[in-house]
Each structure stands twice: as structure tokens, then as C-alpha cells.
Nucleic acid binder design. Structure first.
Length: 587
RNA sequence: GGUGAUGUAGUUCAAUGGUAGAAUGGAGGAUUGUCUAUCCUUCGGUUGCGGGUUCGAGUCCCGUCAUCACCGCCA
């Protein structure tokens, strides 16, 4: 037997017991005549005591242990004379009688402590050592808890967990596919799923009613801090349901996860907002509703007053930063510079200080008198001490830029508070999105998304503006400005699906070649259905109040899609290439 | 595909164009109640790599590689 207890188990009530513990040597405090050693496992730390007067040989061996040696000890639990209230096992220690070194360890390249001295790169290369650290383990354990709670909730709701294939077929829609060459079918390739989308719809045709899966998805696109080439979704689909029932089900799941894994309860229903509203009020389809600073459109009070910059644009829009009138010239200049960075790309930024005496000081005093500025303040609800920030431009660009500024100020003013969770359903997404490059429409969600009932008739009018205005039964769950999940009611009618493919510029042949299996299935009595998928990595990260999804993935990849630990991807043998019928081309 | 930042001891960082240094870690020693123990001694460097400018380059210039962040991209 390697252990009778873990390193986090022992308390005062165990005093006097003979125990066996196994763990890693964390720290050594050597006083010559007496040596303390903390051994660690994932459950905690326990202090061992070695005394020269009791056993000189054993104590000397203990003094020679190196960091991260794996040891097994047998000893007696006793009460400490100097207790340590900072650790759960701090009231007791083990008077060691026997010690076995189960394995030695090389000196680790960074310290295995809560606050490590190692940088990201090194920690990723030695991820198995990084994973010994408490904060990282806590993240992985939390992720496990959320996964288990998800299964609990959904299975209680009657959902069936079904595995779908990982080697599937490449389709040109959406993200770039990861591709796998087939040895038995030379010259042909599988693709890894971007999501199990079509399979879950086929499961609905199959009559499996309520499906879910915690599943890996793969997208071969450039990465970010919050984006991995392989990531995990809680993927769900239901048949014979309306959008309302889907939202309620997964609002229930979200509440259950927060309650069981975080002890947080939400009051009432999650707010809902249409896509149009979200863009108008926040300039984003994933608004962070933890703080205000809503957009106020100022066209009627700011245009046609002789200020050319405003007169020539589609939209003049502003936000009011509470209490920010005290910003210095330097801070304000920094804000202007910030929005002018290439990443934001704004031409400029107009600001208006609302002074305590009710007067206004702005960068556009030459064009707008006090009365005009007051009308802005009235419109925006600005109070003395506030700072109004105004941007102008093409509608989409101005909103996007002001959204960035709003988030920047939210951070700067400390308005995103720890432990504050603000969920929100964004509904009524557009069905289609115009792609400037290819000059055609794309499905905004995916090509199986159902248009809203009222819009079905308008679908084939052919008029560009009408097409842009088509709305879908598509929805996103947003928490704290992060897109946690999204889904839609699907098209279950073959004729409507064909019409949708027409809109998207697919020929009949293309649609048949790529999605023939699904269209075929729809001819055999497909039930009305819909679903959604949560980004599991992101959900877990947000629930923990953290930023980086990499910290919640046991073995993540870096910016370049490399696994730094196993050093993948890597070249393969010529033999393997031959077998697959592949030739490499020199660049 | 693009923009920017960074790259110096095992690690985290410092060093006006002029002797590469600190902390931490490691090794050795002292030390009987610590818990980031303490104290003493000591080891530790291709300044990412390749060019160039200069009497002299960690520092300036060019190229390249790597890491990170962002834009494009991610139905």
C-alpha cells in the first residue's frame, strides 16, 4: 500500500494514528538537529518532522532529498507545538519512522509553487510540471466539475449523450478545415469537424429528440489568447421545440452550473436583447452589460451645425464616461491616440467635459456653443463631472470603434468587477452577411439556420437590402461581453433548405455534393428542430473570472498552433508520405 | 497576410556605445520548532542566431528565428 491518507487529509482527530503518505518533496527546512519537510499531492501539503535525536540515519537521508523527489513515509500523526493556521493540515505533523524514495527527480526548470518563477514558454514546454501547481490544478479540477455538472443537468433533462465521428468530410463553408489524408483512399481526405452540426441534425431526423455531447471541435484559423485550434463545445440539439424552449433549457443549464460550481444564483430570467438593439446600444453583438455607458446617437443634435467632420458622415454617436471629466489633458490625449491606433483605426475623437458649474469644455467649442453641448448632455444623461466621448463615421465602423473605446474605458475606470456575472441573450440575428471580398452572401450563423417565419416569403425577392434585413431564429448567450454560446432553429424542410442554398450562391450540384446526405435525410420526415453549442473552454474561463482559456486546458497549443511540450506538428517519414500518396512541394 | 512588444545566468529581471550585475534557484557548510526558515561560502553567461557600423556593440543598423498581444481571419 502506497498510502493510507492523502497529503490533505490529516487533522487533529488523527493524532496518534500510524499513517502512510506518498507525495512530492515540496520544501525542506533544515535546522541541523531537526528537519521539516512538506510533501505534496493534489490534495494538499503535510509537514513531516525528522529529528536527529530520534533517528540520526533517517534524518540525514531526509536532509539529502531534492526538490520533487517522490517519497513514501510511514509515521505517527502528532499535534504541532507551533501550529500553522494558513494550511488545512497545519495543526498536525508526521513524526516519520520510515522513508522510501519512490523516485528521484531532476531539478525542475522552474519552481513548483503557486507563484512560480517560470515564464509561459517554459511552463508550456514542461506542462506536466506546471500542472503540479495548485492554481493550474484548481483550474483543471474546476473544468471537470463543470463538465460533470453539465452531464448531470442534461441527463436529468432527458438528453442523450451521443458521440459523433471525428473523421468527416470537408466542406468549404465557414472556417478552414483541418484535413487528414486517407491511406486506403489515396488522394482523398477526411476533415476534422468544425462542429458536429450536421450529425446532430441527423440525430434529430433519427428521432433522438434531445442530444448533447461534450465534444472537441477543430478550426484551422489563426489563434488568439482566447482561441485554440482544437476546443471543446457543449453541443446540443432538440426536436419539436421552439426557440423559447431552447433558451429556457440552456438558461436553466447555465444557472445550474453557476449554482453548483460557483454557488452563484441569478435573480430572474436572463435579459434578452435583439441583435439590432445590441449594435445600437453597445456597438457589439456581444455587449458587456456589467456597466452602462450606453451609446447615444447624436445625429439630430450634432449634424448640420457647420462641423464638416460630423456633417459628412452617416452616424455621430457618443458615450458618457461617469466621473471622467477630471481626466487630464494627457489622459485625454492618450485616449485619442488609443482610438487612432491602427487596430482601432479611428480618425479622431471628440470629447466634452461636463464641468461642475454646468458649463462644457470640448474640442469642438468652435462649432458648438454651450447650448448645443447641453443638448448633447441632455440626450446622453451626462451629469457634471462626466466626460462625453463622441465618434463619427460610417455606421458599422463608428459603432465598432466606439465599442472598443467603451470597453477600454470600462477597464480603465474599474467598472468590470470581479465576481460580477451579467448574462444576456442576444436574439434575432441576421440570416445573411454580405462578404465584400467574394461579393456574395454568407450565412451569418450557418447555412441550416431558419429564417424567421415572417421573413420566409421575402427570401427570394432578390433585392440586396431586403436580403440584408432578413432575420433568423438565431441566438447567442453572452456573459460579461464574451460569446459563450450560440445556436438557432434549423431548417427542416428540404425546399426551404434548397432556397437557402440558392441565396448563399450554391448551385444545386454543389449543394448536393456537399450536403446531399443531409438534404436526403430531410426527405424522410425531419422533425422541426434546433439547438445550440456552448464554448466550454470559454465558459469555464469566464466562470472562474479569468481571461486565458489556455489556463483551463490541460495541454494547450501556443499562438502558432504548436504544442510546445510534444513539439507538434512535426515532419513525417518519407515512408508515411509514400503510403498516403503525398508529395511535399519545396517553397 | 499585417502591426507592435519582447529575447541577457537554470529562472525572473537590470545594465549612458566603455569591467555583463541583482534576486531567486543550485552546490557546500552552520543551525533543534520552522512553515518563502535564517546565516556564511561558492558555482553559474555563445547577451536567440547571422551579418554590418564603430577604436569598442547586450545597447545602433539590416536580416532571420522564437515567444506574446492585437488586426485580418474564426459560418
Amino acid at each position: 500500500m502506497y498510502r493510507t491518507h492523502t497529503c490533505g487529509d490529516l487533522r487533529l482527530e488523527n493524532v496518534g494514528q500510524e499513517v502512510i503518505l506518498s507525495g512530492w518533496m515540496q520544501t525542506k527546512r533544515d535546522f541541523g538537529g531537526m528537519t521539516f519537510i512538506d510533501i505534496r499531492d493534489r490534495y494538499g501539503l503535510t509537514q513531516l518532522v525528522f529529528d536527529m535525536e530520534d533517528d540520526q540515519d533517517l534524518c540525514s537521508r531526509a536532509r539529502k532529498l531534492g526538490r520533487e523527489f517522490v517519497v513514501q513515509i510511514k509515521g505517527t500523526v502528532r499535534e504541532r507545538s507551533n501550529k500553522n493556521p494558513n494550511m488545512p493540515t497545519g495543526n498536525v505533523e508526521i513524526e516519520v519512522g520510515e522513508m522510501t524514495i519512490l523516485n528521484k527527480s531532476k531539478l525542475p526548470p522552474f519552481t513548483i509553487e503557486d507563484e512560480t518563477d517560470g515564464g509561459d514558454e517554459l511552463r508550456m514546454t514542461y506542462r506536466y510540471l506546471d500542472l503540479r501547481r495548485k492554481p493550474v490544478q484548481n483550474n483543471i479540477i474546476f473544468r471537470s466539475n463543470v463538465a460533470i455538472a453539465t452531464r448531470e443537468y442534461l441527463s436529468k433533462e432527458g438528453f442523450i449523450e451521443v458521440e459523433t465521428p471525428v473523421l468527416i468530410k470537408s466542406t468549404p463553408e465557414g472556417a478552414r478545415d483541418f484535413v487528414v489524408p486517407s491511406r486506403m483512399n489515396k488522394g482523398q481526405f477526411y476533415a476534422l469537424p468544425q462542429s458536429p452540426q450536421t450529425f446532430k441534425q441527423l440525430l434529430m431526423v433519427a428521432g433522438l429528440d434531445k442530444y448533447f455531447q461534450i465534444v472537441k471541435c477543430f478550426r484551422d484559423e489563426d489563434l488568439r489568447a482566447d482561441r485554440q485550434p482544437e476546443f471543446t463545445q457543449i453541443d446540443c440539439e432538440m426536436a419539436f421545440v421552439t426557440q423559447e424552449e431552447i433558451l429556457n433549457t440552456f438558461e436553466g443549464l447555465t444557472k445550474y452550473l453557476f449554482k453548483t460550481c460557483k454557488g452563484i444564483e441569478f435573480n430572474g430570467d436572463f435579459p434578452r436583447m435583439t441583435y439590432d438593439e445590441a449594435l445600437r446600444l453597445y456597438g457589439s453583438d456581444k455587449p458587456d452589460t456589467r456597466f452602462g455607458m450606453l451609446f447615444h446617437e447624436l445625429n439630430d443634435v450634432a449634424k448640420n451645425k457647420g462641423f464638416k467632420v460630423f456633417d459628412s458622415v452617416e452616424l455621430v454617436v457618443g458615450i458618457c464616461a461617469p466621473g471622467a471629466a477630471s481626466y487630464t489633458r494627457k489622459q485625454l490625449d492618450a485616449l485619442v491616440k488609443w482610438v487612432q491606433r491602427p487596430q482601432i483605426g479611428a480618425k479622431g475623437l471628440v470629447y466634452v467635459k461636463c464641468n461642475q458649474d454646468g458649463t462644457f469644455k470640448s474640442t469642438v467649442d468652435k462649432f458648438f456653443d454651450q447650448e448645443a453641448l447641453k443638448s448633447w448632455a441632455d440626450k446622453m444623461g451626462a451629469k457634471p463631472g462626466d466626460l462625453m466621448l463622441v465618434m463619427a463615421g460610417e455606421v458599422d465602423r463608428a459603432r465598432k470603434q466606439l465599442n472598443e473605446l467603451r470597453l477600454h474605458l470600462g477597464r480603465e475606470l474599474g467598472l468590470m468587477k470581479e465576481g460580477d456575472f451579467k448574462p444576456l441573450w442576444v436574439v434575432d440575428f441576421p440570416l445573411l452577411e454580405w462578404d465584400e471580398d467574394t461579393e456574395r452572401f454568407h450565412a451569418m450563423h450557418h447555412p441550416f439556420t431558419s429564417p424567421k417565419k415572417n421573413d420566409i416569403e421575402r427570401m427570394l425577392s432578390g433585392d440586396h437590402e431586403t436580403m440584408k434585413a432578413l432575420r433568423a431564429d438565431a441566438y447567442d448567450l453572452v456573459i460579461n461581453g464574451s460569446e459563450i454560446g450560440g445556436g438557432s432553429i434549423r431548417i427542416h424542410d428540404r425546399a426551404l433548405q434548397s432556397r437557402n442554398f440558392d441565396l448563399l450562391g450554391f448551385t444545386k450540384e454543389e449543394a448536393e455534393a456537399q450536403f446531399g446526405f443531409l438534404l436526403g435525410a430531410f426527405e424522410y420526415g425531419a422533425p422541426p428542430h434546433g439547438g445550440l453549442a456552448f464554448g466550454f473552454d470559454r465558459l469555464v474561463t469566464i466562470m472562474s473570472g479569468q481571461e486565458s482559456i489556455r489556463d483551463f486546458i490541460a495541454f494547450p497549443k501556443n499562438n502558432q498552433g504548436r504544442d510546445m511540450m510534444i513539439d507538434a506538428p512535426s515532419p513525417v517519414d518519407q515512408e508515411q508520405l509514400d503510403e498516403l500518396g503525398l508529395d511535399l512541394v519545396e517553397e
